[in-house]
Amino acid sequence: MGAPIEFEIRRRTLVASSAAVAIGAATGQRSGAQSRAALTPSGAEDSTITLTVNGVEQELTIDNRTTLLDLLRENLKLTGTKKGCDHGQCGACTCTVNGQRVNSCLSLAVMHDGDEIQSIEGVGTPDDLDPMQAAFVANDGFQCGYCTPGQIMSARSVLDEIRAGIPSHVTDDLNAQIEVTDDEIRERMSGNICRCGAYSNILAAITKVAEEQA
C-alpha cells in the first residue's frame, strides 16, 4: 500500500474537479456563430507533457482537450481504466494521481505534467495479483468486470484514507482514530457504481484486505 496521504486540498485538485469537460453532447438546433467562435482555440491546441505512469516516465504531445482517462486508454493503450460515463458520475475511471484517487475523466491530461499516475495495470498482473485484486476474485466482488478496476483503485485508496485519518460523512468522532467499519467502507466507496450489484461482495473483499493489513 502507498504512503499516507497528505490531508490538504491542493489548488490544482480544486481546479481539476471543476473543469468538467462537458463539450459536445449538444448538437442542437441552434449552433450559432457564438458557439462556433468559442470552438476556435486562441492558443496552441497541443501540449507536450511528461508524466510517470505505473513507474514509467512518458513524454507525450497531446490535444489539450484530452482527459487523463483518454490519455491512458487511447494514447498509452492502457485500457484497464474504464470509461463508464465520462462525466464523473460512475467512478469506473478511478486511478491515482500522486497517491490520491481521482476520476480521471474529470481531469485534463495537460494538468498532470510532472505527476505520478497509477492505473490498474500498475497494481498487479493476472499471474501476480495484488492482495486487493486477489480478494476481489476470492469474494466474487464483480460480475461484468467493467467497474472493477475503478472499484479496486478506490478500495486501495479507501484503506489508505482511513489510515491517514481523513474523516467521511459517517465518521462519528472526528478526534478518535477512525475504525474500518462496514459503513465507513460503504460510504467511501459510494462514488464507484456497480450496476451488477456486487456491493456486498466488494465490501467483503475490502474487509478481508483490511483485516490482513491490520
Partner: peptide, 21 residues
C-alpha cells in the same frame, strides 16, 4: 468455483469492445 476470467478482469486485462486497439 471462483470465476475463471476473474484474474483478467481484476487486473484490467479483459478487453472490452472499445479497447481493442
Amino acid at each position: 468455483t471462483p470465476r475463471v476470467d476473474g484474474p483478467l478482469k481484476v487486473s484490467g486485462r479483459a478487453p472490452y469492445a472499445y479497447e481493442r486497439h
